[in-house]
């Protein structure tokens, strides 16, 4: 396999997001701009070349036969994807860079969760990818909650949640991802850290009624831990933070029905 360090890169940049330092390089100025337009939310450009993670996107020249060539995205030294469509590689970079930030962030714990703010406190919905977090978050925002994230709850040492407001990723009937622009969100976007008020452990089930059971802080912490990106790291910070959140929040567990009606019902209950 080709070592990306040996390729001739003409464009290099680095950014920091929640203290994770990520590098980006490519051999095409236009692609470089597109990659920088796709950085994780709240990223800041930085000058240093010392990074925790490096993404390299090699744009192959046109072939003589006229066939479209394969372009390659590397995540550190590994080939992450090899595709003919640059746009798909930029999308792959966008998503994987978010995961890299979640793994490399310092003094923050990233939990796979949808997050909205409601009356000054956060509602966290921990769940794996493809569990319907974004749909529920979208409906909660349309019902009046403040948008924080459809993918990660960024928790600090005080147990507060910070925004990670990326464009919502909603899936269509063909299970393809479509991004929802911020102007289409029909709601506000959170900017400051807020304490966690409620953790919802919920899954969609057709026709289900919301009959929440209150979980103990221990069970709540376990639900959060099962969705924490750095859960296996063994860092004491992870358990400390999750414990603080679980002790101070209500942990509710129940199946739910359609997102739209559930969102309205939930916000009324939490009013």
């Amino acid at each position: 396999m080709e070592n990306p360090d040996l390729l001739h890169w003409t464009q290099f940049g680095a950014f920091t997001c929640y203290d994770a330092r990520i590098g980006v390089r490519t051999n095409d100025a236009a692609v470089f701009r597109r990659m920088f337009d796709s950085l994780p939310p709240h990223s800041k450009v930085m000058a240093t070349q010392k990074v925790d993670w490096m993404y390299s996107l090699w744009v192959a020249p046109r072939t003589r036969s006229g066939r479209r060539p394969y372009h390659v995205l590397y995540s550190n030294e590994k080939q992450y994807a090899r595709l003919r469509e640059i746009e798909q590689l930029v999308d792959a970079f966008e998503r994987d860079a978010q995961l890299a930030v979640a793994q490399k962030a310092r003094r923050k714990v990233f939990v796979h969760a949808g997050v909205v703010g409601w009356r000054g406190r956060a509602i966290l919905i921990p769940a794996k990818s493809y569990a319907g977090k974004s749909t529920l978050v979208h409906e909660l925002v349309r019902a009046g909650a403040t948008y924080y994230s459809d993918e990660f709850a960024v928790l600090d040492q005080q147990g507060r949640v910070h925004p990670f407001a990326r464009q919502l990723s909603l899936r269509d009937e063909m299970k393809r991802n479509a991004k929802l622009g911020f102007d289409e969100l029909e709601g506000k976007i959170g900017v400051r850290a807020i304490p966690v008020g409620t953790v919802l452990v919920t899954k969609f089930r057709a026709g289900a009624k919301w009959r929440p059971k209150i979980l103990t802080p221990g069970l709540g912490a376990l639900e959060l831990l099962a969705n924490t990106v750095t859960a296996r790291s063994g860092q004491p910070l992870v358990l400390e933070v999750l414990t603080r959140v679980a002790k101070n929040a209500r942990i509710l567990k129940s199946a739910r029905g359609e997102a739209k009606s559930f969102a309205t019902q939930l916000l009324q209950q939490l009013a």
């Binding site: 998503r95 979640a102 794996k128 299970k175 069970l219 376990l222």
Partner: peptide, 23 residues
């Protein structure tokens, strides 16, 4: 005693696929 196995940190972020996503 409840036991859980912790997740692999490399699971894809929602919509992380270069192409189509799937279950």
């Amino acid at each position: 005693i409840k036991t859980i196995h912790l997740p692999d940190p490399n699971v894809p972020v929602s919509g992380a696929c270069p192409g189509q996503s799937c279950v």
